[in-house]
Simulated scan of single mutants.
Amino acid sequence: MNDGGLEDPNDEEACREAALTLLDAAARPRKALYERLTGKGYAPETVEGTVKRMEELGLVDDESYARSYLRYCLGRNLGERGALREMTRKGLETSLAERVVAQAAERGLFVDSAYELGRKLARRTRGMDPQVRKRRLWSAGGRKGHNPSLIRQVAGDLFADSHDET
């Protein structure tokens, strides 16, 4: 037995079963599936063949995963940098993540995300000093990876007159 506890790291059927179990639990991009299977002790060439087969069957589709994960990121009110960071952390290739994020940016989805973040923060900070509200927006926007100029625009639009009709 090897360190991963497998009897045979070249067992294609066991590797395929492990891949299906992982994919049953959650969709995964190619790289993440590869890393999980090699981490379980399967030989890299066995894993590569298994991952390719999963792609041929349509069970692993990085493009589809990227678009789905982008929706998740937007639901969390992440900005361009935040979405890109999360997508690459999940195992998507940087070039694919950059392309999907750029397409979303062209469609104005990150502007919508920033304004939604601003509206949520405005509701939670209603009645506070306008400067405190703006600082909190700046802080949240920075953590979520929004463009500073976009956060400045949102702050100006939502907290411009410091009244609480937001």
Rank of each mutant, 00 (worst) to 15 (best):
R36W: 15
R67F: 00
K120L: 14
A160I: 01
R123E: 01
T21M: 09
T88G: 05
A140M: 01
R53C: 03
L23F: 08
G4E: 09
A14Y: 01
L109V: 07
G49E: 12
R36C: 15
A105V: 09
Y115G: 04
K52F: 14
A97M: 07
K144Y: 11
T38F: 07
A83T: 12
E7W: 15
A160W: 02
M1E: 15
E13R: 09
L70K: 09
G118H: 01
R124E: 09
A83Y: 00
E93S: 07
G4H: 03
S149M: 08
A102G: 12
L59R: 00
Y65F: 15
V47R: 02
H146C: 08
L109W: 09
R89S: 11
R126C: 08
V132S: 13
K52Y: 13
K144M: 14
G142N: 10
A25M: 14
A105H: 06
E13V: 05
P44V: 13
R89F: 02
L33D: 06
R136Y: 10
H163E: 12
K134Q: 03
Y65R: 14
E116Y: 10
E17R: 11
V154Y: 00
G142L: 10
V100C: 04
K52E: 13
C73W: 06
G108F: 02
K144E: 14
Y69G: 05
A27C: 08
R124L: 02
P148A: 05
R133P: 03
A104Q: 07
D61K: 02
L57Q: 10
R133I: 02
V47N: 04
R124H: 02
Q153H: 01
A97E: 06
E106L: 08
E45A: 06
L84E: 00
A19T: 01
M54N: 04
R16H: 04
A122N: 07
R28E: 06
L37Q: 00
L96I: 00
E165M: 14
G108I: 00
G49F: 09
S162M: 13
A104N: 05
H146I: 07
H163Y: 00
L20T: 02
S95Y: 01
R53G: 08
T125D: 10
D161M: 11
E63M: 11
D3E: 15
E48S: 03
G49T: 11
A66H: 03
Y34K: 03
A83K: 07
P29C: 06
T166V: 12
R36M: 15
A19N: 04
S113A: 15
P44C: 11
